[in-house]
Amino acid sequence: MIDIVVQALVNGLVSGTLLAVPAIGFTAMFAVLRFPNFAVSGIATLGAFAGYLAYGAGLQMAGSLVVAFVVAGAAGLLFDEVAHLPMVKQGALPAAIASIASGLVLENLVRLGFGNDPRGYDRPIARDIRLGDIRVSPQQLETMGLALALMLAVFAILAFTRIGKAMRASADNPDLASLKGIRPERIAMIASFAGMGLVGVGGMLLGLDSAIDPLTGTRILLSIFAAAVLGGLGSVPGAVLGAFLIGMAEELSVLAVGSQYRAAVGFVAILAMLTLRPRGLLGERAY
């Protein structure tokens, strides 16, 4: 029994790493733009398909991820500028609702272009490597490595670059930041682009191992949101922690209560967190 639990934790660690990428994007956007952008469902799908096309056209994995990032980022920026940011002035809720609509629009645009059939990245599938009783997939290790590298890059940018510092300042106190000459509109645009870019990359990373279809992003929306809420909305390290916890909890739930209740894990996590510790595990610290 213990081996299957360890195996489930390992599986959860892998899926948590992949989940962390879009969760960072989601929480970073929340930190700066002050509304939960549920268009991540459609953007993740869009990124997955953009990466799929790039990979199919002969680009390497890293190049395809860049394409996914740019396409998803550009689409995210467009939707924010056109649909969401005008609504933020009315409050976070109208903007959040608008973003749900954007997600549906994007999902159906992808459906219009690609149909409902699932597609897979043309990537050879290898048997797992066994380390004692525990098995890991070489490809998942590769995907996990890409996700970890990406996360380190995000942390480095936030910690050491001018743009990163400006984003943190703007998230911390927009008025004070603008007094210091930081232009909030520009920071908002950068947050939209980079945040959604990460979401797009996350969609592609999650699709690499399985399959993609117009509902790819919708399937992971709840997990992304739960990870961000668990870690504390607006906190980037929190989102990473939340993603690992959600990833592992979802896998363990398969053993404990059965896979059909996986969706409940996300809801229970959100409910428990909002009831007991609304700030999230790490609190809202935007870096």
Binding site: I4, Q7, A8, N11, G12, V14, S15, S137, L206, G207, D209, S210, L215, T216, R219, I220, E250, E251, V254, L255, G258, S259, Q260, Y261, R262, A263
Partner: peptide, 14 residues
């Protein structure tokens, strides 16, 4: 019974 919205079934397969 598995959740058809999951992106991986490693634990279920195990």
């Amino acid at each position: 019974i598995y959740d058809d919205k999951k992106t991986t079934y490693r634990t279920e397969v195990d």
